[in-house]
Design a protein around this nucleic acid. Structure first.
Lengths: 202, 202
DNA sequence: GCGCTGAAAATTGTCAACAATGTACACTTG
DNA sequence: CAAGTGTACATTGTTGACAATTTTCAGCGC
């Protein structure tokens, strides 16, 4: 565990790491996870690992069966996915609409920095990095709302969407989509910004 | 802990009990919860209590501050509540629409039984019982969908809505609203059933 | 060979002790 | 007396041992 993220709690660090592995398909749906394995891998006891499991299962990334263990969750079915997309859109549009007039230059600076990371990931065709920074981009927007509970509401829904990143033929399109959002925000054009955000969530 | 619910895991029993206390306002927003207190109250160690805390915090009922403790969450703000209502409506309507043609006589029997509990709670003006059975009613519908993940998706959203049950002047209206849903389902009238469901969620 | 039984192994669940962190408050200092 | 400081105290975080449960698989009867 890198000492860079000491600000985070042990279970959170483990959860973040596992989340990465699930989102990048290093762990595939159905894969079983054993507490002992991970506690040895991370050099901690089983307690924090258990907590990370619980956290990720509430986020829909893992499935927990009492007395049996934990498995990586299946992707949403083709029937349910459109619902999840719609829910996530509703939340993000709500947030963008709500904060739009109060977006500061610092906010845009932060988001530009993430956009640069997205661009770099696209240019090097690093899908894992793209998944991570895409997530960071939307997280940053949600988190800029005063009501911190919105992030907790958004997270389990967004997670269920991010489990597969293969909708784009041209990976650079992801960068362009996110750029369009920020450009519209910078131009103060709310309807276009919302439209661009909606187009990006699918 | 009553021996009736031995089928459930220890943290789940504790979480269920705490949920009841939060939803019935026995525990008010901002109230601090101490692991020791509850572990003594339930006669278990702190481990299961911690897990219950984590579970309920992911459901939006508790707020967790690392190294500081747990508090009962605030109700959604007036700004956010309409969003939560809309999200919950979307999910429940999606489910009802999806299962409608496959609803069995047994399903309706189960839901009728819950409706009877709702009626009894309304007649005795028992708001706590009403909250519980109202929740059970909608849970039962969601759970009758094949995709079990829908329940996990629905729960944290529904919880954020249920934290306050005071929108009705006449408490019997809650019974009538739920009855309308089942009547329409029994009549095979999908649009009316969906309309009745939407009217009930607000 | 097939299915059942039951003991052994693997795994999760719970607990109590200890460590780390945060809080309250008396005390010092200017 | 106000502001800052240090030291107990209270509370959460982590750990390793033990208990309960599930899984595996060898042995047995048919």
């Amino acid at each position: 565990m890198s000492a860079i993220e000491i600000y985070r709690t042990l279970p959170e660090q483990i959860a973040a790491r596992l989340r990465q592995d699930v989102l990048s398909s290093k762990l595939k749906p159905g894969d079983p996870l054993r507490e002992i394995d991970l506690s040895e891998r991370f050099g901690v006891s089983r307690g924090p690992v258990r907590e990370a499991f619980r956290q990720l299962s509430q986020q829909g990334l893992l499935v927990l069966e009492p007395n049996k263990g934990v498995r990586v969750a299946q992707n949403p079915s083709v029937e349910v996915r459109p619902l999840v997309v719609e829910l996530r859109r509703k939340i993000e549009v709500f947030v963008l609409n709500s904060i739009f007039e109060r977006i500061t230059a610092e906010d845009l600076e932060d988001w530009d920095a993430i956009l640069a990371d997205i661009k770099a990931a696209c240019e090097s065709s690093d899908v894992d990095a793209l998944t991570e920074h895409d997530l960071r981009f939307h997280q940053a927007i949600i988190r800029s709302h005063d009501d911190k509970d919105l992030f907790a509401l958004w997270q389990p829904i967004a997670m269920r969407m991010m489990m597969r990143y293969n909708r784009l033929d041209d990976i650079m399109e992801s960068y362009r989509e996110h750029k369009r959002i920020l450009d519209a925000i910078r131009a103060g054009d709310k309807p276009i910004a919302i439209k661009a955000l909606e187009d990006n969530i699918q």
